[in-house]
Write a protein that binds this DNA or RNA. Structure first.
Lengths: 175, 175
DNA sequence: TGTGTTATGTCAACCGTCCTGACCTAAATG
DNA sequence: CATTTAGGTCAGGACGGTTGACATAACACA
């Protein structure tokens, strides 16, 4: 069992499939891969800036949505991010300690913690969104029909149907 | 320091910013958020299926690219994924042990480990890509100009310019 | 009043996926 | 031969997520 083409992985003994997958109308490899790479680079810009603050992507998401909807309560944030309060906890604490967010007791229901950005948090969030918007703008300028609406509708169509109401709610004022 | 609107987060003493960010041509909140949600759901389908095998997203990415380019060597995979061999190690081992991939010594350079899918690995990869392609197809059908080329060019335009050659290389045969 | 529920926070233990640094073998290369 | 290269492995750590259990304060209601 030696020689140039000896099978190195002995376990499970499957034979190698040497041919690449055949072209198939229902297997859109280019778009699947482009979507993967596009998202990777879409967040890479922000990653770099966040690193200077010792923040990660979790901080970015929290900062973004609190800025977008000042006065959001913790439960709403958990629903949007689809994470548990245990995993939100440390992230929220760090953002408050660093002075990017503040928590204020709900005026009617004092159990609630209304989340607001500080000016510092607003500034950082705007900076991050600006970088991402610039990339998107550039990508739209590079297409034939410079049709922002089609891109918006395409992205919306990628979202799970049951989630679309929630996302629409988040975008109430802007189109 | 009590009362309905008492400031709960005392540290860093920033004042809350209550207004949502003003509309701004250079801050495309809808597209930024749609891209986030779209990617989340783009991945979610696959996550569910992978869970049945005890696999995560790292396994998915390895499985995908090895299937796409059978005979890929480890170094190429590391370059595409932009991770270290230490973090690839366990993932690759599990995929080999579960019989989804095999490693074969390079016919010319026997230090190399050529990576191939087994039929089992090919089947799983195709299944995963099929789910993702179906979502993409549906999203394209929902837009005005059902223009796949524009979506492809948009996604390509989102990719960091220095990375585009690498991505193009991966897509040689298909358009 | 008291009892139960809700909003939030916290402790502990765990997992997956990445990292750096150090070291090893086998094979190619000069 | 010595060196470099391809790949693998061990150790330790970080981050971001999970589940489960429990605590506190405030609301809601009989």
């Amino acid at each position: 069992m030696s020689g140039p083409t000896a099978n190195i992985s002995e376990s499970s003994a499957g034979q190698p499939v040497v041919a690449p997958p055949e072209p198939d109308e229902d297997l859109d490899f280019p778009l699947v891969e482009l979507f993967f790479f596009a998202y990777r680079d879409f967040i890479a810009d922000a990653d770099g800036m966040l690193e200077e603050y010792g923040f990660g992507r979790a901080h970015h998401r929290v900062l973004h949505f609190v800025n977008r909807r000042p006065g959001m309560v913790v439960a709403e944030l958990l629903e949007i991010l689809r994470i548990t309060k245990q995993s939100l906890g440390p992230v929220l604490r760090q953002l408050v300690e660093s002075g990017h967010l503040v928590q204020i007791a709900g005026p009617e229901d004092r159990r609630q913690r209304l989340l607001y950005p500080t000016q510092k948090g607003r500034n950082l969030s705007i900076q991050l969104t600006h970088m991402q918007s610039r990339r998107i703008k550039g990508a739209i300028e590079g297409i034939k029909n410079k049709d922002r609406e089609s891109i918006r509708d395409f992205l919306f169509g990628m979202i799970e149907p049951e989630e679309r109401d929630l996302v629409n709610g988040l975008m109430e004022q802007d189109q």
